[in-house]
Amino acid sequence: MAIIRWRPEADVFSQWERMQHDMAGMLAASRPWAGGDEATFRPEVYPALNIYDDGETFVVRAEVPGVDPKNIEVEATGDTLTIRGERVLPEPGANASYHRRERDSGQFRRSFTMPKPIDNTKVIAGCVNGVLELRLPYAEEAKRRKITVKAL
């Protein structure tokens, strides 16, 4: 979260609003889908996520270019996933100088809860071309089931 300079002259209402905004941001980062279907939300917590549903499995994708897959850790607790990692950029040599520096290095950690129960024993995680992909199958109890109707 951003560190904001304390300004005693700022009125209490704007601070209250900022607090509300921060709370909403934290909530949205942890329950991203709650904003509605396909809501485009700009998160403050790295990495940005897309979530898809193929009817049996959720697919979560995150763009993490330059992050070594060995530096990514994924943890599932119930229906909550936590992605943790670090992006390390190559150190330029002693005789090198930057003309442009737009890329950042640093650590990241993001937790989010899936909209439906998942079977967290069957989660698959992989990284291809700088995109992290998680496959999270629905839990048995969340699967669509046909029920035979019989005379009672």
Binding site: P65, G66, R100, N129, V131
Partner: peptide
């Protein structure tokens, strides 16, 4: 794409973030 451009005595190296590109 976001890039870093680094120059040393022998070469200029461009690093570009291209997630998802094959």
């Amino acid at each position: 794409p976001q890039v870093d451009i680094v120059e040393d005595p022998n070469a200029i190296t461009v690093y570009a973030d291209l997630p998802g590109v094959k």
